[in-house]
């Protein structure tokens, strides 16, 4: 098995190999235990500096990356859009150059534009980790979802994963599709046609419009957050109608396998895409996802920074 990631950056799961994914997942498994210790810290990244550049609102991903770095003893700075010079009109290019001048080892970037992490990666010597770029990719989310599934079901190959929600505008969906397909899983998506981008079937996914038809096949249901600001525009008529057609309820789950896993990248709109009794129910692994997210981010930071 390979021990190293021969890359400077983690920009997405589309251009990463199954072997690399395997390495990241296995590294995460071995690092997970650190967070269970009374003293949750190892010196692995002591003296390294990591900047969390969050130019779009985020709680869980930002704190997860921050904690991951701290548990490995790296120094961190978190720059958010509301506190940064971007508000004063500074460009992403200048922000990047200034960070570079401070001799950082890695930059974790969340940005509303697809390609923003690539933009930085092309211009920085430091490692760039994509923490979500527009509707493009969110690779650590894809990895933590795969880690959670593998932990529960002991494999990824031939697992049937169903993703429900606004696929067109979801970076979580893209990273899941790219990653899971590479690991041999079967991926289906379920949404109204206005949420399904053209040619998505070329990524090897099966398309359902009817949730009741999609549910029985699934081993895992990954429920996407519905972006409330899109309602009533042109993509769907109302939250009410979306809830009627696509909300995962306890009743609907009767159609699914009894041991189906319920996942959600958060933050949940309770009662919109997911009913509270399902989110908090026996099938839900949503909080395990969060725990695994920390381990995945520790693994990524460790693999990218120490092997340079």
């Amino acid at each position: 098995m390979r021990k190293k990631l021969h890359r400077k950056d983690l920009l997405g799961l589309e251009d990463i190999s199954a072997e690399e994914i395997e390495l990241i997942l296995n590294t995460a498994v071995s690092l997970k235990e650190i967070s269970e210790r009374p003293i949750k810290k190892v010196p692995t990244l002591r003296g390294k500096t990591i900047v969390n550049l969050f130019l779009e609102p985020s709680t869980r991903t930002s704190s997860s990356f921050d904690l991951a770095a701290k548990r490995l003893s790296a120094d961190t700075v978190t720059v958010s859009s509301s506190s940064s010079s971007i508000l004063k009109g500074e460009t992403l290019l200048d922000t990047a150059r200034n960070l570079e001048a401070m001799r950082i080892d890695a930059a974790v970037v969340r940005h509303s534009s697809a390609g923003a992490a690539h933009f930085l990666a092309q211009r920085l010597k430091a490692s760039v980790i994509n923490a979500g770029d527009g509707s493009h990719e969110h690779p650590t989310q894809g990895l933590l979802d795969m880690l959670t599934i593998r932990e529960k079901l002991k494999r990824l190959e031939n697992i049937n994963v169903l993703i429900v929600g606004d696929i067109a505008h979801s970076r979580v969906a893209r990273s899941n599709i790219f990653g899971l397909k590479k690991m041999g899983a079967n991926v289906s998506i379920c949404a109204p046609p206005t949420f399904i981008p053209y040619y998505i079937e070329r990524l090897g996914v099966k398309i359902f419009y009817n949730l009741n038809e999609a549910l029985p096949h699934a081993d895992v249901i990954n429920v996407l957050r519905i972006q409330l600001e899109r309602q009533g525009k042109e993509l769907f008529p109302s939250i009410r109608e979306y809830k009627e057609l696509y909300r995962i309820t306890k009743d609907r789950l009767q159609l699914a396998k009894s041991d189906v896993l319920i996942m959600h990248p958060g933050p949940i709109n309770r009662g919109v895409e997911l009913d509270p009794d399902v989110a908090d129910g026996i099938s839900s692994v949503i909080l395990e996802q969060v725990t695994n997210g920390l381990a995945i981010r520790m693994a990524i930071l460790y693999l990218l920074i120490t092997h340079k």
Partner: peptide, 13 residues
């Protein structure tokens, strides 16, 4: 352009 590439990249088509 709206097509396979815009779908892959998550850019509006």
């Amino acid at each position: 352009n709206e097509g396979y590439t815009s779908t892959r990249l998550g850019l509006e088509g």
